[in-house]
């Protein structure tokens, strides 16, 4: 399988000044050296609590904010080689931007309230100047149909506030897919939607990812959602990756205490089921650590990677 994206040692630091008059600045390591790869056609769920650096990772990957250090390699569609995005020239950058898109959390804020749905979806085509005017309109109608907004003619001249949350998120998805990207970053796209609508949006995304051959990074705080959506799950804590494994492997056989704590905290929609109470326990991690002393990410086989970081004093 070819990789679509590879991230090596990505770091993003923020400088925070201590006070109005203080010249001292502390550095907050929002993303502190994370590495992962995503294969073509696969999806990686990035799970962690708020403030752990998930969104910062997404913003660095989509080049919204410049990264502090590390390399991002992206698959070149021409010869299937991995290219470093730092080495891209202007033409290459344009090509990269066409291939990477992002869906945001808040369906109410992610569409410009003063634009019509048509203009919103047309925007990427206009920016990249793709196709004739008629082609573009045709493409917009087609994509709206694909995301289940039918008939498209009725929605084209409308404004976002006339649509419901679910419909807006569909429009967001249409906007990101109209460029036919190969990689999609989803930043909690369903967390603000109602339960009833959530599943239809998730199903739509999975179907489209399949049909259009899009790989995606799915950021969420909800392991149950990640399980539903993703082939692999990466657990993140305090700017670092804790554990990466294929979804079922991670859920059945978690090793890091934080992963175990996280899994044991998820409520189960079954009144007859009683969750076990998990207390943080480092014995297993330490014994594995003792056997693999040189690396900071231990490969346990089965694509199961484990961090040796014990997050001194941060776990409870």
């Amino acid at each position: 399988m070819t990789k679509i994206l590879e991230v090596k040692n990505l770091e993003k630091h923020f400088e925070v000044s201590k006070g109005i008059f203080s010249r001292n600045k502390t550095i907050v390591k929002a993303v502190d050296g994370i590495s992962f790869e995503i294969l073509k056609g696969e999806s990686l769920g990035l799970v962690g609590q708020s403030g752990c650096g998930k969104t910062t990772t997404a913003r660095a990957l989509s080049l919204l904010d410049p990264k502090t250090s590390g390399t991002i390699l992206f698959n070149d569609s021409n010869d299937n080689s991995m290219i470093n995005i730092d080495d891209l020239d202007e033409e290459g950058m344009k090509n990269f931007r066409r291939n990477i898109q992002m869906i945001f959390q808040d369906p109410y804020e992610s569409l410009n309230p003063r634009w019509t749905i048509k203009d919103i979806i047309l925007e990427p085509l206009n920016i990249h100047n793709i196709g004739s005017t008629e082609d573009r309109e045709e493409a917009v109608k087609e994509i709206l149909q694909t995301v289940g907004i039918t008939p498209p003619e009725n929605y084209l001249p409308r404004y976002p506030h006339e649509l419901s949350g679910g419909q807006r998120q569909r429009v967001s998805i249409a906007r990101t897919l109209i460029m036919k990207p190969r990689f999609l970053i989803c930043d909690e796209p369903t967390s603000m939607l109602d339960v009833s609508i959530r599943i239809s949006i998730m199903d739509l995304m999975m179907k489209l990812a399949d049909d259009l051959d899009v790989s995606y990074l799915y950021i969420t705080h909800d392991l149950a959602v990640a399980r539903y959506m993703c082939n692999n799950i990466a657990v993140m804590f305090n700017g670092k990756l804790v554990e990466i494994a294929p979804t079922e492997e991670l859920l059945q056989n978690p090793i890091h205490p934080y992963t175990k704590r996280l899994i044991s905290s998820i409520p189960i929609p079954d009144p007859t089921y009683t969750r076990e109470n998990y207390e943080i326990d480092f014995t297993e991690l330490r014994s594995i650590k003792a056997a693999n002393q040189d690396s900071s990410m231990i490969d346990l086989g089965n694509k199961h990677l484990l961090s040796t970081n014990e997050f001194e004093g941060l776990l409870y």
Partner: peptide, 14 residues
Amino acid sequence: STPSIIGEKKKLRS
């Protein structure tokens, strides 16, 4: 329509 982390991974209804 509620996903769970235990049990069979099943198709959810929307």
